[in-house]
Simulated assay, not measured.
Amino acid sequence: MTPNFIYLTLFPQYFHNYFQISLAKKICERKLLAYQVYNLRDFAVKGQVDDYPYGGGAGMVLKIEPLVQALATIQETYPDSYLILLSPQGKTFTQNDVPRLLNQAPNLQISLGDFITMGGEMPALTITDALIRAIPGAIQEESYQQETFHNSQLDFATYTRPEIYNGLKVPEILLSGHHQKINE
C-alpha cells in the first residue's frame, strides 16, 4: 500500500515546495508516496485561526474550532489515517520510530527535541524526510540498511577522492580492493 502523508498547516507552500525537489519529487513521480495538504484557514471563520490566550500573556493560540473541523474532515476523507501531533511534550523522534510510523502507528505526540521553531512545518518535513527514505524502493535497500542510526548503529567514516587532501589520507584498507576486509 502506498503511504499517504496528509498535512494540516497554515503554510501549505512549505509542503508543495518540498515535494517538488530532490528525492521527495522522484518518489512522488514514481507513485511510491502520495500527499495532501490542508490549509487550516479553510476551516476557520473569515480565515482567523488563532486568538489571544485566556489569562493574558504574549502570543496567540490556535482556536479549537478550525482544528476539530479540519481533523474531522481529514478523518472522514481518510478513515484509516492516524494523527501525529508535533508537541514539546511528545516522545522524542528517533530513527527507531521510522518503521512504526510507516506501518500505521496509533495517534501520538512527537517532539524533535528541546528547541522551538516558528511553526510545525519544518519539524513535520524533517520527520517526512526520515520516513520517505524508508519507503521500499525509495532508495537502494543496501544504502538504507547501512545508513547511520539504522539498527541503532553509527555509520563508519566515508571517504572519496582525492586520495590525499590537506595532509589527510584515505585509510590503506579502503584502497586495497579486499572487500571482505573493508566490510570488517
Rank of each mutant, 00 (worst) to 15 (best):
M1Q: 10
I6T: 07
Y7D: 07
T9Q: 05
T9S: 08
L10M: 13
Y18S: 08
F19D: 07
S22L: 07
K25S: 11
K26N: 14
R30Y: 00
K31A: 10
K31N: 13
L32V: 11
L32W: 06
L40H: 09
F43D: 10
G47Y: 04
Q48N: 12
V49C: 10
D50E: 10
D50F: 06
D51E: 13
D51S: 14
G56M: 08
A58R: 14
E65K: 15
L67R: 13
Q75K: 15
Q75S: 14
E76K: 15
Y78M: 07
Y82F: 12
I84A: 02
K91D: 09
F93S: 03
F93A: 08
V98R: 04
V98W: 01
Q104A: 14
A105G: 09
P106L: 09
P106H: 11
L108N: 13
L108K: 11
S111Q: 08
D114F: 01
I116P: 00
T117S: 14
T117M: 07
T117F: 05
M118Q: 13
E121W: 06
M122R: 10
M122L: 15
A124M: 06
T128V: 11
T128Y: 01
L131W: 02
I132H: 06
P136M: 08
G137D: 04
A138Q: 05
S143C: 00
Y144E: 04
Q146P: 00
H150Y: 13
H150P: 00
A157I: 10
Y165G: 02
Y165W: 15
L168M: 09
L168N: 11
I173V: 15
H179G: 00
K181V: 05
E184L: 09
E184T: 11
E184K: 15
